[in-house]
Design a protein around this nucleic acid. Sequence first.
DNA 1: ATGGTGAGTAAGTAGTTACTCACCATGAAT
DNA 2: ATTCATGGTGAGTAACTACTTACTCACCAT
Lengths: 214, 214
Amino acid sequence: MNRTKIASRQRHQPSRTSGHERQASLISTAASLFAANGFTGTTTKQIAKAAGVSEALLFKYFPTKHALYTAILAEKAQYSELREAVEEAIKKRDDERLFTLLASYRIRKGTDPTMLRLLLFSALEGHELSDMFFQQQYRVFHDLLAGYIRRRIEDGAFRSVDPVLAAKAFFGVVLHHRLLHDIFGLPMHLSHEASVVEYVSLFLGGLVRQSPDS
Amino acid sequence: MNRTKIASRQRHQPSRTSGHERQASLISTAASLFAANGFTGTTTKQIAKAAGVSEALLFKYFPTKHALYTAILAEKAQYSELREAVEEAIKKRDDERLFTLLASYRIRKGTDPTMLRLLLFSALEGHELSDMFFQQQYRVFHDLLAGYIRRRIEDGAFRSVDPVLAAKAFFGVVLHHRLLHDIFGLPMHLSHEASVVEYVSLFLGGLVRQSPDS
DNA sequence: ATGGTGAGTAAGTAGTTACTCACCATGAAT
DNA sequence: ATTCATGGTGAGTAACTACTTACTCACCAT
């Protein structure tokens, strides 16, 4: 009766996916759904369907919906790259390059708003891992920049501002740009690159001492 | 049997609330719940209970949960105040006062994060009125500031930057401050007032021409 | 061949959701 | 005294929610 089914199965690619692959596929599927609709706005049924498996299997890998969400945040909270380039610019005291680097890492052509949406949702919905996520995605560079500004003030190159507040202000400009265009969907009147250049110039113009009197 | 009940009711304040009052009370109750938990994260049962009425009554005033949400956004999208003071500062070409006014309207002691959370949730959840809300809560001042910067550039008082981008940058700084402290709950290391002063100084330092050569 | 193991699912479960309906209560006008 | 619009509710309902149960199937080492 169902002989044909069994026979046909044998000459296709492995009909069973490994546990790790499935887990990863569920995580990435769920990530985009949670980013689009939030935690409560996404159902486990939707996730399972989008990942092409039964709902029951989802619960084999993740005991609760919450655990799946946690697994996403824990995985996505890794960044790498960038940091080296940033530290290079810091060593060289190349202000413009450092600020441009930091800004254009977040403002560029192919930036995927998923992470930003996930970050905002997790903060708004008060998820327990929101802090960790925030810490790893953001805090590192914030502290790095604040430290740099402090040193440049000591060098006499920057006006004597509050370094932490200044770093916050700069990231504010960048994050706001993404908020407006990636989340609110506002049209841009300048290219990504031109915006970055303008932001950096605007910001440095306020930091760099105009009339050195040393 | 229930005579006492009827008797006791007579000597209390009017046992029936007017339709308008009830509607308003439902709106404000719902607003804070939606702000705290998002649209899908809030149930009509919760709202009714918090407002002290039956769920059925809620649906007498608002045919759907969605309609209630819409009513909130429509109501809260009014601002008034501030605008006059802002236009006064614009007329006087008082840069510092204008920027301080705009910043401290949003960064101050008693600011209630409800509106900001509601705005973010509505944008993230893709609510249809999100645009309108955004427009009225934000766009007005954005355009006002961009226009002012343009004029000050023509006056020769500001460097020749992109006025729209500059306005965006400034609101970015302010919004980011609120995001970090009102939504993410980060501790502040400076008072509200001191932060505003620092932000304005930082920003103007980049706008005002340091060495006038006219 | 056989038995152990992990991938996979159909068909539930109890509880919750947005929303409805039939009905009662109040008070002011007739 | 009766009418009647309006404020108000208890008790639903169908659909959906996160999560479970009991089961099948494919693969592989013995």
